[in-house]
C-alpha cells in the first residue's frame, strides 16, 4: 500500500479545502473589513426607513464603517429604531447626521453618516439625534405634482 503518496494527496486535498474556505471568507466575504468583535453599537430613530433592511451597510463618506443590525418599530414615538454596529476604528462626533440614502437609482439603501463638529464622540449605546428619513418615491412624486400645481396657479 503506497501510504505515503496517498497521505500526500489527502494532505493536499485538505489544504486546498482550507484555502478555499479562507478565500471565501476573506476575498469574497471580506471578513477583515468588518469584524463584529471590535465594534460599538449606536441607535437612531427614523421617521421612515423606506426599504432599509437589516445588514445594510453604514457608510461614512461612502466608506463602509458598519452595518445595520436591527430594525424595530417604537410604539411610543411611532417611528423606527435602527440599531447600527460600527467598527470601533471609526468614531463619530455626537452631532453626526444619519440619513437613509440609496446607491444609484435602483440600488440598495444604506445609512450615510455625515460627521458634525462636536468634541464629544459617540459611545457604545448612544443615540444619534439628527436623522433624515428615506426618500419615498410616492412622496417625491406627490411633492413634484404639488409644486407644479402651485406654479400653474401662479401663472
Amino acid at each position: 500500500m503506497q501510504r505515503t503518496t496517498m497521505d500526500l494527496w489527502v494532505g493536499l486535498f485538505v489544504v486546498t479545502g482550507v484555502i478555499a474556505l479562507m478565500i471565501l471568507s476573506l476575498k469574497v466575504g471580506n471578513l477583515n473589513v468588518y469584524n463584529p468583535s471590535q465594534s460599538y453599537v449606536i441607535t437612531g430613530n427614523f421617521e421612515n426607513i423606506g426599504g432599509l433592511k437589516v445588514r445594510a451597510p453604514v457608510k461614512g463618506a461612502g466608506v463602509v464603517v458598519g452595518r445595520v443590525t436591527d430594525i424595530q418599530f417604537s410604539t411610543q414615538t411611532y417611528d423606527a429604531i435602527v440599531t447600527m454596529s460600527l467598527d470601533s476604528r471609526f468614531t463619530f462626533p455626537k452631532d453626526t447626521f444619519a440619513s437613509i440614502l440609496t446607491s444609484g437609482l435602483l440600488g440598495e439603501q444604506y445609512i450615510g453618516l455625515a460627521a458634525g463638529g462636536d468634541d464629544v464622540m459617540l459611545k457604545d449605546g448612544d443615540k444619534v439625534m439628527k436623522t433624515n428619513s428615506a426618500m419615498v418615491l410616492e412622496e417625491l412624486i406627490g411633492r413634484f405634482l404639488f409644486d407644479k400645481a402651485a406654479k400653474d396657479d401662479s401663472l
Binding site: 471565501l24 471568507s25 476575498k27 469574497v28 466575504g29 471580506n30 471578513l31 445588514r55 451597510p57
Partner: peptide, 19 residues
C-alpha cells in the same frame, strides 16, 4: 466586480450558512 461582491456577501449570513 470585487468591491460590489465584497460589500454584498456577508461572512456570517452567506459563507457560514453555506458551510
Amino acid at each position: 466586480f470585487w468591491s460590489q461582491m465584497q460589500s454584498a456577501v456577508d461572512f456570517r449570513f452567506d459563507i457560514l450558512n453555506g458551510f
